[in-house]
């Protein structure tokens, strides 16, 4: 497996060059997508929810970056084994490398997307407090969670080609069930459980609190984030290793 570290690097390099080096627009889009989304949602939602605009921008963008990272990686992951079908059929590689390369590319994109976030916090927010040092933890949680979900989706899509379609359709409602664009306190008490069943709620909260409120998140939020991340990875790993020997017959 570690013999294939170089392959992982080269796959990520390919992803990024094909997306960036040969098109400046591709790179700009990574930076601009969160900015544009923020502008649109700010106009719409800060009027609807009468959220103070300045607060909303930081509130939204910090959560949206986490969501966007997760959504982008998992959507890409659906196709990653099938796209490499020719390779899988011809030669041995540890197939997990294909999934990991998708997530690592996503991490790099996420890194670039932090640039607008820094500006937004400096301009519209209260600046940074020492609690931003804590952010490394939620980033690790969300990456681990994403790897797990990606492993599951990548395996399933090999056998059932339309899993990606269903997953895409699911993402929109899932995003709206995650408090990204609205504050938690607009949720009626009887529906609160729906939010609390959603693992992305904890991951988003965990990342947003140090930026938006300048404090370390609630310990239960941290604990649940860590738990869902590990659970996702374990399940994903088991599913993937059970399925991978059969990929060659289906790609």
């Amino acid at each position: 497996m570690c013999r294939f570290g170089g392959l992982l690097i080269n796959l990520v390099y390919r992803d990024l060059t094909v997306r960036y080096k040969r098109s400046v627009i591709g790179f700009m889009w990574t930076l601009l997508n969160p900015v544009i989304m923020t502008a649109v949602y700010t106009m719409v939602f800060s009027t609807i929810f009468r959220f103070p605009t300045q607060d909303f921008i930081v509130y939204f963008l910090s959560a949206y970056l986490i969501w966007h990272f997760f959504a982008q990686c998992t959507v890409e992951a659906c196709k990653c084994i099938l796209n490499a079908g020719a390779l899988v059929k011809k030669i041995y590689i540890p197939k997990i490398v294909l999934v990991l390369s998708v997530v690592i590319s996503g991490i790099i994109n996420f890194g670039f997307a932090l640039i607008p976030l820094i500006f937004v916090v400096l301009i519209f927010g209260g600046g940074f407090s020492i609690s931003i040092l804590f952010l490394i933890a939620p980033v690790i949680f969300v990456v681990v969670f994403t790897v797990g979900v990606s492993l599951i989706l990548a395996s399933l899509t090999v056998f059932f080609l339309d899993v990606g379609e269903f997953y895409n359709a699911l993402l929109m409602p899932w995003m709206f069930l995650t408090p990204i664009i609205y504050p938690m306190d607009i949720i009626p008490k009887e529906y609160l459980f729906l939010i609390k069943l959603n693992p992305m709620y904890y991951l988003v909260e965990c990342f947003r609190t140090p930026i938006y409120q300048g404090t370390i998140p609630n310990i239960s939020v941290i604990a649940i984030s860590a738990l869902v991340a590990i659970a996702s990875l374990v399940i994903g790993y088991i599913v993937f290793t059970r399925a991978e020997d059969d990929f060659v017959y289906y790609v």
């Binding site: 013999r3 294939f4 170089g6 690097i9 030669i91």
Partner: peptide, 15 residues
């Protein structure tokens, strides 16, 4: 050249 690195690591070599 880039493909040589990619293909080589697919075959199990290091960069």
């Amino acid at each position: 050249r880039e493909n040589t690195y990619l293909n080589g690591t697919i075959l199990g070599c290091t960069n």
